[in-house]
Amino acid sequence: MAREREGMRKERLDRGIKVRSDGVYSISSWREMSFLLAPRLLLILGLLIMPLVLVPAPYWQKVLIIVCIYAFLALGFDFLAHFVGLVSLGGALYIGVGAYVTAFFNVYLGLPIWLCIPLATILGGGLCTLLLWPCLPLRGVYFAIVSLMFPLLSARLIEALDVFGGTDGIMGLDGFSNSWWEMYVLISFMLIALFALRRLVNADMGLIFRGVKDNDQAVKASGISITFYKAVGVFIASSLGCFGGACLAHIYMWAGISQFALDFSIIPIAATVVGGGGTLAGPVIGCLILVPISELLRDFGTLRIAVYALILMGFIVFKSEGLMSFGSRKYNQFEHWVEI
């Protein structure tokens, strides 16, 4: 919360370099180019170097993988919530479907891993979209409730009907040939997804999505089917989640009902809150913070949830805009006090 000063107000001004690099001048000097590139490179290079830095701590390399999987979900959640207007709690569904689809192709049909993961991404995304299709006319919290129901339902169905290995899950999936592959496949695809989504939401098609969120009546009156575009949005988000789920299954070499765990629905939302909704990069940063914290707190046993909740509460109360919005404001603007 900002401190208030008597007779003063805080003025925010764009930095000159920000104004210049918004326009055509951005390619005219190294200074301006690096102003634009620095934050992006920090994230990209930071993530790419991280596995090398973590060589002495193999456990934290695994954590990095989990961070990436959550980042896929958080990206999907942020995209759906802030650009399509659907609050989806279906993260667990996406991970579970991705895991089971890839397990089906890999174990039952014997397809190689490099074919299973893309298949799981596309078909899993399609399957999730089909499941959620009847709920697409629902808005806001109603869609959230229904999408939360699906992972619970799927887990119970698999358990009760004893299909796909029942409670044991499907075992014996091929793993990645080595842990470097695991890490770099996940990190690079996560970065690609991040920058592709950022580009998409500003492209013409992204404007349709934002139109659906802001004013679906006007989109209908413009001769565009909002159900179709909502479905496309869900497909994009669920494909990302299914890719994460498929990778997770191959890393554990196992697909089971614990991959429908609600953690996969909840943590991405928390990460979006911490990182700043509507920024796309924010949720990724949120995952980079929250997932390691949750690993550190493992020693506290069940108290972990309490500490976790406190951290979240602190963010919501004191920095509700999220780290990314806060950071980009500080990066792009001056702040100073002026007399009223």
């Binding site: 934002r210 139109g211 802001d214």
Partner: peptide, 15 residues
């Protein structure tokens, strides 16, 4: 209810 956060001409991208 135009798409308020967008410039006027970007509103027409949708149709």
């Amino acid at each position: 209810r135009p798409y308020f956060s967008l410039p006027a001409y970007k509103n027409l991208i949708v149709p």
